[in-house]
Design a protein around this nucleic acid. Structure first.
Length: 423
RNA sequence: GUGAAUGUAGCUCAGUUGGUUAGAGCACCAGGCUGUGGCCCUGGGGGUCGGGGGUUCGAGUCCCCUCAUUCACCCCA
């Protein structure tokens, strides 16, 4: 492939007609399911002040430390293309004083930007469908959010994805657990990989998720978050599990689910699809009771998830759950001779007025070429308008499947060609 | 940021140990059929062989650099 002078930026995608229909299927399902749970859509700016994410997501996270697209505008403001939406939505709610009437249930579907090396299921611009619930601190909110994600995936035909659930504690019990974990890891520092040795100080919980053999052995002996939960956190986790059981949603406890963003507390969960390769997590979420306070508001419990639509599309593709391409038009109006071009336009317009999807020739090509085009776009009928018919006030209607033709008075075309049933 | 693989028509790919004007299939356009799609036949348009540099009488082929893509690590959706 010859290199174009101008190509799309690395890690971005063009969604061409071949794929845009698939996106529309997924987007429609997201709106439908979210609204069926009583969630309303929220949209936030594509760029925000850097502080929103420094304080919301956490200064020491990879996202903030090295993945943000930051820039200064002409007013010398420090801005950033939003790397995620949870902190941005919280900022928006705070600004609108929207926490007054809990619970607040919202969903979003928008792009995020992170400077990373692209690979399967990971892009520099990606789209997440996500939900946020504020003002509800109990386990029912967590379960509702998981049920929403699960319903959305089921709506698209996906079954048997695995729901992994864990709790990473809260401000009461996490510090003590963290200290216990660090002490254990320090004792086995030599057995850990270089990355994990660095993680001991920076983010010890992340070691739990390391796939390296040596680290796994150390982790197997390490104190687990679940055993160090305070009474409130444990009761919360059990409440979530009881709710999931009541809903018939199967899940597995997974102590390695830790999540990377600072704002998570208590519940964390992922929904995974193994065939996606290294990026198997389609949906990730959890509870973030400290987020609003970190942004400068009065404390507000919150819970939600983010679901990567590009990864979801990969999954649907893999499972053959995307609809086959369907014909985009019902009727093609062909004109013989340039003089009839305007008349063909008029007839096409007339038919559109009757609910048909209609394309007409605009290249003044041979009838043969026009019919080839009509077949290519998959129409059921072609209206052929030639000088001979036009002189008599009729047009030929050709059925592209049976090849049968009949002459129809032009003013009766709309009545004769009825719109096909579309699901 | 680290590692590996791959870049030849719009697409999928051939291209011998370096050797004349770089090919095929599909797609596209036209003609055969001067007003009728699919099948068939014939013809046509389309390539700075990703880019730059080097070795050589000669580079798509060998070497170096670079860019892009893909996969993995890190991390995450």
């Amino acid at each position: 492939m010859a290199t174009l002078e101008l190509q799309r930026p690395r890690g971005t995608q063009d969604i061409l007609p071949k794929d845009s229909a698939k996106w529309q299927v997924v987007e429609a399902a997201a709106h439908r399911v979210a609204q069926s749970f009583g969630y309303a859509e929220v949209r936030t700016p594509t760029f925000e002040h850097v502080e929103v994410f420094r304080r919301g997501v956490g200064d020491a996270t990879d996202i903030v430390e090295k993945e943000m697209y930051e820039f200064k505008d002409h007013g010398d403001r420090d801005l950033v293309l939003r790397p995620e939406s949870t902190a941005a939505v919280a900022r928006a709610l705070l600004q609108a004083s929207a926490f007054a009437e809990p619970p607040v249930r919202l969903y979003y579907m928008q792009s995020h930007f992170r400077y990373e090396r692209p690979q399967a299921g990971r892009l520099r611009q990606h789209t997440q469908f996500g939900v946020e619930v504020y003002g509800a601190g109990g386990p029912l909110a967590d379960a509702e959010v998981i049920a929403l994600a699960q319903s959305f995936l089921a709506e698209l035909g996906l079954r048997n994805l695995s729901v992994r659930l864990n709790s990473i504690g809260d401000a009461q019990c996490r510090p003590a657990y963290r200290a216990a974990l660090v002490a254990h890891l320090e004792g086995h520092r030599e057995e850990l990989c270089a990355d994990c040795q660095r993680r001991i100080e920076r983010s010890p919980l992340r070691v739990l998720d390391c796939k390296k053999e040596g680290c796994r052995r150390v982790v197997a002996e390490a104190p687990q978050p679940i055993d160090h939960l305070c009474e409130d956190c444990l009761r919360h986790l059990e409440g979530v599990e009881a709710a999931l059981f009541a809903l018939g949603i199967s899940y597995a406890r997974d102590g390695s689910i830790v999540r990377g963003l600072d704002y998570y507390t208590r519940t964390v969960f992922e929904i995974q699809y193994a065939k996606l390769g290294a990026q198997s997590t389609v949906c990730g979420g959890g509870r973030y009771d400290g987020l609003v306070e970190a942004l400068g508001g009065a404390p507000q419990p919150g819970v939600g998830f983010g679901l990567g639509l590009e990864r979801l599309l990969l999954t649907l593709e893999e499972e053959s759950l995307l609809p086959a391409d369907r014909s985009a038009v019902d009727v093609f109006v062909a004109a013989i001779g340039e003089e009839l071009g305007n008349e063909a336009l008029r007839i096409a317009q007339l038919l559109r007025g009757h609910g048909l999807r209609v394309e007409q020739d605009i290249l003044a090509r041979s009838l043969k070429a026009q019919l080839r085009r009509a077949q290519k776009v998959g129409v059921a009928k072609v209206v052929i308008l030639g000088p001979q018919e036009f002189a008599r006030g009729v047009a030929t209607v050709r059925d592209m499947v049976s090849s049968a033709q009949e002459e129809v008075p032009i003013d009766q075309l709309a009545a004769r060609i009825t719109a096909p049933v579309r699901e």
